[in-house]
Amino acid sequence: MESAEKIARDYLAAVEARDLPRAKAFLAEDMVMLFPGGKRPPSLEQLVTNSKGRYQRIGKTIEGVDLCPAGDATIAYCYGTLHGVWPDGEAFDGIRFIDRFEIRDGKIQSQWVWNDSGEHRLARGGRN
Rank of each mutant, 00 (worst) to 15 (best):
M31D: 01
N50T: 07
T74M: 11
E102S: 07
S110K: 01
P41M: 11
S110T: 15
R57A: 12
R121I: 11
N115T: 09
Y77S: 03
R54K: 09
A23G: 03
L44F: 09
K39V: 08
D116N: 01
G53Y: 02
A8N: 02
I62L: 14
T61A: 10
E16S: 08
G38Y: 14
G53P: 00
Y79M: 07
A73D: 07
I108G: 12
L122H: 06
V15L: 05
N128A: 12
R9Y: 14
G118P: 07
G125M: 08
P41I: 08
G71R: 07
L27V: 03
G84R: 04
M31R: 09
A76P: 01
P69G: 01
G84Q: 07
Y55D: 00
K39D: 05
D99V: 15
Q46T: 14
R96K: 10
D19W: 04
W112T: 10
G118V: 04
D66Y: 05
D116A: 06
N115K: 11
G80R: 05
D19F: 07
R124V: 10
G94C: 03
D72Q: 14
D99E: 11
A70F: 13
R18F: 02
G84C: 04
G118A: 12
A25V: 08
A76L: 10
D30I: 10
A17V: 13
L44A: 01
G94S: 10
L47P: 03
G37T: 06
A70N: 06
V85F: 00
W112R: 12
W86Q: 00
D72F: 02
Y11H: 10
V65E: 13
P21T: 11
A23E: 04
C68K: 08
R124H: 02
R124T: 02
V65Q: 02
N50K: 05
K39R: 13
M33F: 13
L34A: 11
G38M: 02
R121S: 06
R22C: 12
C68E: 06
F101I: 04
A70T: 13
F97Q: 02
D72T: 15
L122V: 11
E90T: 08
S51F: 03
L12P: 00
G53L: 14
S43I: 10
R124Q: 13
D99G: 01
P36E: 03
Q111H: 06
A17M: 08
P36C: 05
K107T: 09
I58Q: 08
P36F: 01
N128P: 08
Y79S: 05
E2T: 01
L47Y: 15
Q111C: 05
G71L: 03
T49E: 15
R18L: 15
W114L: 13
C68A: 11
P21L: 05
Q109H: 09
G38A: 05
M33Q: 07
P21M: 12
S110A: 15
R57P: 00
R57Q: 12
E102M: 09
R18M: 04
F92W: 13
Q46E: 15
V113T: 04
D72G: 13
M33Y: 04
S117E: 06
A91N: 14
D10Y: 02
W86A: 10
T81Y: 10
Q56K: 08
E119M: 11
I98T: 12
T81I: 10
M33L: 10
A17P: 01
E29M: 07
